[in-house]
């Protein structure tokens, strides 16, 4: 067999035989589902933790709220533990220890990745809040808004816009990291490639193919984020 026939045969086995290409599409769906759900959970957790920690740090001297100190402590433990342990270990603990009786792999993966990216996102968002001009908070408060209303209406919208590039970066990392879900047996696009490689004993086609898929997705996200940034900026000029 010459080189080209060989390649065609590999392609045939990797994608065509038994309609295997459908498995890739299904795997891609799983990858995207886990990524999107985890992103959603991550941003919510991130904003929550960031606001608690910033509120704690911005308290006026002499008016310290003990509940806020407690919440702040919990948030710090959360960020430390999550950032201090490998993602794969967190996922395994989540699947084999905490939810050992559950076989809902997508749910567990979504939770594990959401909790993980929440810790990283919270630090990005907290950095954004601390970098805001204090005059914005003062202007909001002097109009009669409460701290939380000022955060919600004035600070957070500006912060999210400001940190959009970092959040895009976080999303790209998250998308690629979800390939780790193979260790709990979830059939994402990486797992599909491994399964097919195990059947055909040929690694080249499936692995190069999914690498290209990841690359294309990341390029798409990069493009989408820069478009979003341009649009958000445009309406201020």
């Amino acid at each position: 067999m010459d080189f080209w026939t060989n390649l065609a045969d590999q392609f045939n086995q990797a994608f065509i035989v038994g309609d295997r290409w459908i498995l890739y599409i299904q795997g891609l769906g799983t990858t995207l589902l886990v990524t999107v759900l985890a992103l959603f959970l991550g941003v919510i957790l991130g904003v929550l933790v960031a606001v608690i920690r910033a509120a704690h740090d911005q308290q006026k001297l002499g008016r310290v709220n003990p509940w806020l100190s407690l919440l702040n402590g919990l948030c710090r433990v959360y960020v430390t533990v999550i950032r201090g342990t490998p993602m794969m270990v967190q996922l395994l603990i989540m699947y084999l220890v905490i939810f050992s009786s559950s076989r809902n792999q997508i749910g567990v993966a979504m939770l594990a990745f959401g909790i993980n990216s929440g810790a990283y996102a919270s630090e990005i968002i907290r950095g954004g809040i601390m970098a805001m001009d204090p005059g914005q908070m003062e202007a909001g408060r002097s109009l009669g808004f409460s701290y939380s209303s000022t955060m919600r209406l004035i600070i957070i919208p500006q912060v999210l816009k400001m940190i959009l590039p970092s959040l895009g970066n976080e999303l790209i990392t998250l998308l690629k990291e979800t390939s780790i879900v193979t260790v709990i047996g979830l059939r994402d696009i990486t797992k599909v490639a491994l399964l097919i490689q195990g059947k055909t004993y040929q690694a080249f086609m499936p692995l190069i193919a999914i690498a290209l898929v990841y690359l294309a997705l990341v390029m798409l996200l990069t493009w989408a984020f820069s478009g979003l940034e341009r649009r958000l900026r445009a309406n201020e000029r």
């Binding site: 001009d133 005059g135 914005q136 003062e138 202007a139 909001g140 408060r141 002097s142 109009l143 009669g144 808004f145 209303s149 209406l153 004035i154 919208p157 500006q158 816009k161 201020e236």
Partner: peptide, 30 residues
């Protein structure tokens, strides 16, 4: 504070809102 208007050295307008929204957000929400 609703009854005490404040004007700052550095204006502190909300940059993500139009002029009209800057002026109406507090009356509407509060």
């Amino acid at each position: 504070r609703q009854k005490m208007g404040m004007v700052f050295q550095h204006f502190n307008l909300f940059p993500h809102m139009t002029v009209l929204r800057n002026m109406t957000v507090a009356p509407i929400k509060i």
